[in-house]
């Protein structure tokens, strides 16, 4: 079947099926199972109202359970097993031990830590700077949408964009990558293969993610800046505070909670970073990260055990943020 027709059919079946399920199940509940009539009308209404929420939630719960909750446990189980022939054999922590002996794993850990520190910090800082700068400009909205734009670009597309910037031609030829063009023009040195200089190449990859994420930080922080009560700023001005003092001592402390939210959100994105590394270096020249390491294990080395162990490490790193988010959500609910 032509995929396009299949797509239209799936949309029709998916949406139609959902509508039909919700409509029919409600109808069944109200007309057949517990009709709000007859001798037990009151009891029936109460019972129907107890069941209804679960009818509404059922499809979502099945999908969430199957596609997100179950895999967490399945991956954990897989990480404790190894393929022996066609069967799985329990091997305890062997997969983890094997992973710990691999240099590539520790390289990924080191790089992930670097990413975790640099990218959220830089993206938040640039976002805050952009939010503050554009706040009172006449063309601020235009500037914002330009800085926000990379959000729409795929990681792979962004990788192509930045690879052109880092492009390097042999010395003596005219450089077509702007970074080398500027570098050669300013220093007179030979052009560099930016993505092949160990350690520093990590930073060149991180720039791509900072470029993408800064717009997100800007949008959120800009709204937070607008929410600051004017009186606090006016009072500071009357007391003789300069613009920098106002920014760092009055505004930043007041939007601190938002900064934390932005920071953690970007942190989660960073932990999952995969496309950029795959597209630009594929983990060569000491740029490996956990997500790409895991992908290598799963789908190139077909080592499901170690791949699952690597996935569990990513899960482990996300867990503190998960707990913190749940904690905050519960606080808000109360």
């Amino acid at each position: 079947m032509n995929p396009a027709i299949q797509a239209v059919l799936t949309v029709a079946i998916g949406v139609g099926g959902c509508v039909l399920y919700f409509w029919l199940s409600n109808l069944f509940l109200d007309k057949v199972l517990y009709p709000p009539r007859g001798p037990n009308a009151g009891r029936n209404i109460n019972r129907a109202n107890m069941i209804r929420p679960w009818l509404f939630l059922l499809p979502a719960m099945i999908a969430l359970g199957l596609y997100l909750a179950y895999p967490v446990f399945a991956t954990f189980w897989l990480s404790l097993h190894k393929d022996v022939g066609a069967t799985k054999q329990f091997v305890g922590l062997d997969n983890y031990r094997q992973m710990m002996t691999e240099g590539k794993f520790w390289e990924s850990m080191r790089n992930n830590m670097l990413w975790l520190i640099v990218v959220p910090a830089m993206a938040t800082a640039f976002g805050l700077l952009a939010a503050q700068l554009t706040d009172r400009l006449k063309w601020g909205n235009f500037a914002k949408s330009m800085i926000f734009m990379p959000m729409a670009i795929s990681f792979v597309g962004a990788s192509v964009i930045w690879k052109l910037i880092y492009d390097s031609r042999p010395a003596g030829q005219e450089q077509i990558g702007i970074l080398n063009a500027v570098y050669v023009w300013m220093t007179g040195n030979d052009p560099q293969q930016w993505l092949q200089i160990p350690f520093w190449n990590n930073l060149f990859l991180m720039v791509v993610l900072v470029w993408i994420q800064a717009g997100f930080a800007m949008v959120i922080l800009s709204a937070a800046l607008r929410g600051i009560p004017e009186e606090t700023i006016e009072a500071a001005i009357l007391d003789g505070a300069g613009p920098f003092q106002i920014f760092f001592k009055i505004k930043v402390p007041q939007i601190m909670p938002t900064i934390v939210v932005v920071w953690t959100t970007i942190t989660i994105t960073v932990l999952k970073v995969f496309d950029i590394v795959l597209a630009m270096t594929n983990g060569q020249w000491e740029t490996q990260v956990l997500a790409n390491y895991m992908y290598d294990k799963f789908f190139r080395a077909f080592d499901v055990g170690v791949g699952s162990a690597a996935a569990m490490i990513i899960m482990l790193l996300v867990t503190p943020i998960l707990v913190w988010n749940v904690h905050n959500a519960r606080k808000e609910m109360r």
């Binding site: 509404f56 967490v72 399945a74 999952k272 997500a291 895991m294 499901v304 996935a311 749940v326």
Partner: peptide, 29 residues
């Protein structure tokens, strides 16, 4: 908008699932 036991728990579960890396889901799924 509906009152039922376990609602708060479900909301918390949704918030938790928000950050579960989909990397974990690949192989089992």
């Amino acid at each position: 908008w509906m009152e039922f036991p376990g609602r708060a728990l479900l909301v918390a579960a949704v918030v938790a699932l928000l950050v579960v890396p989909l990397q974990l889901a690949l192989s089992p799924l």
